[in-house]
Amino acid sequence: MNEAKPEAARAAVDSVVDAVRGLFHEGINRRVVVRDSDDDVVLDVPLAVGMVAALAAPVATTIGAGVALVGKCGIKVENRKPQASPPARVVDAE
């Protein structure tokens, strides 16, 4: 009877670990880009790094975002992974 609980707990832990890995992978592929009013890039970092910085120093992150918005900078999250093109269709001409 005690053997079922560790298996269920292990499955739950594996599920959480897989979810965190997926989020980290998405965070690496997405980037936070801050541009000034002349459309020049001021800051370009992976989203995962931005999230770690936001968790480590929330006050500094809030002040930086406020300064960027007051200074008429645009903050955008961009997906750097190229979109997969749809597969080509093969048509038989008979």
Rank of each mutant, 00 (worst) to 15 (best):
E7Y: 01
A8C: 05
A11L: 06
A11G: 04
V13Y: 14
V13K: 15
D14Q: 10
V16R: 08
V16P: 03
V16K: 08
V17I: 13
V17S: 08
V17W: 08
D18A: 10
A19G: 06
A19H: 10
R21F: 09
G22W: 03
G27N: 02
G27T: 01
G27A: 02
N29P: 03
R30E: 04
R30G: 02
R31K: 15
V32P: 03
V32M: 08
V33F: 00
V33Y: 02
V34D: 00
R35S: 07
R35Y: 05
D36I: 00
D36Q: 00
D36F: 00
V42F: 01
V42I: 04
L43F: 04
D44F: 04
D44L: 04
V45R: 06
V45H: 05
P46S: 08
L47C: 06
L47Q: 04
V49M: 09
G50A: 01
V52N: 09
V52Q: 12
A53E: 06
A54T: 07
A54E: 05
A54K: 04
L55R: 07
L55I: 07
P58S: 03
V59H: 09
A60P: 07
T62Y: 11
T62H: 15
A65G: 07
G66C: 10
G66R: 10
V67G: 02
L69F: 07
C73N: 13
G74L: 10
I75C: 01
K76T: 15
K76V: 15
E78M: 06
N79E: 02
R80A: 07
P82T: 02
Q83M: 13
Q83G: 12
A84K: 13
S85H: 11
P86S: 07
P86M: 10
P87L: 01
P87E: 00
A88I: 10
A88G: 09
A88C: 15
R89L: 11
R89S: 11
R89V: 12
R89Y: 06
V90K: 03
V91I: 09
V91R: 07
D92E: 13
